[in-house]
Design a protein around this nucleic acid. Structure first.
Lengths: 156, 156
DNA sequence: TCCATGGCCTTATTTTAATAGGTGAATGTG
DNA sequence: CACATTCACCTATTAAAATAAGGCCATGGA
């Protein structure tokens, strides 16, 4: 059940062009279309590929404001409510439990500073147990990819 | 050139299932397949959809370690080299210029703590101008989506 | 040596995508 | 008010892609 270099190339190509046809993929891999489709199917079944997604331009959609919010929770019994609210809030794209001074790090996206204010004061700070937040506004984004590094898997 | 509710639903559906067929999409929208395909094509041409991507399971690929690294740069003339290195490093998934005590916030992903150590000491701290880094290790991830909030666009 | 397995090939069939042509509602204009 | 234009959509057709079937060959184990 190891990954060979063609599998890695497959993953790389499908991260770049998620809707490419099997024939296109196959020609890049030097295989026939059914063979390429088989490989992709296997990668899906193994859980390495979890799905496919359209990539949207957040700015074009009016989501010009991105921020990271560090959250401190006072008591562990407040966690459940916090996590539920995080899941229910579309503006919260990511929520990680992290080491350091704060407990959670959120990545959020919204349209205005006013919307950010509403998000922080009416949603996040309204959650029971949230005792402190610290917000970092994103001024510009240099790089933003979802494609994980695959170099460490290469054989030979 | 406004977005109607069908466009928003289209974006939502394509974020969830990026390889769905036009016929599937059309039935969810209550349209014919060519009409749905036309709408998607227009969304692509307008730049709202920038592409499609396979979603990979980072853990299944052995990338069990995620971290955020805050970087402080001492002088503005070092920026160019820093940005180039960021682009060239696959382990750095994101790099944002942020407000606050530090200049940049990186999101990185790698396999071990050893790989993280190598990344920090041999790549990031090796860049001219990097005077300070502060690392937050991700203990667990509660939520991690790429799909931006679209509720603010809904009409009626 | 022989058999089983796995990955790939080619071919055939089914499904999907792309294209063309036409209809009706909404809009703007003589 | 009549008319032309535009736009989004439809259906029908054609081209392309996905899927399924059957066979080949290399690899590994009994």
């Amino acid at each position: 059940m190891e990954l060979d270099n063609l599998d890695i190339k497959t993953l790389t190509l499908l991260c770049q062009r998620g809707r490419m046809t099997w024939a296109e993929l196959a020609s890049q891999l030097g295989l026939s279309a059914p063979a390429a489709a088989d490989r992709v199917k296997r990668l899906e079944e193994r859980g390495l590929i979890t799905g496919y997604s359209a990539q949207l331009d957040a700015e074009a959609l009016g989501l010009t404001l991105t921020a990271f919010i560090a959250v401190t929770l006072d008591q562990p019994h407040h966690r459940e409510g916090f996590l539920a609210e995080v899941q229910a809030t579309a503006e919260i794209l990511e929520c990680h439990h992290v080491t350091g001074d704060d407990d959670y790090l959120l990545k959020v996206r919204c349209c205005h500073t006013r919307a950010l204010e509403a998000l922080i004061t009416h949603r996040i700070k309204a959650i029971a147990g949230v005792v402190k937040t610290r917000t970092l506004i994103v001024l510009s984004t240099v790089k933003e990819t979802q494609t994980p590094p695959l170099g460490h898997l290469k054989e030979s």
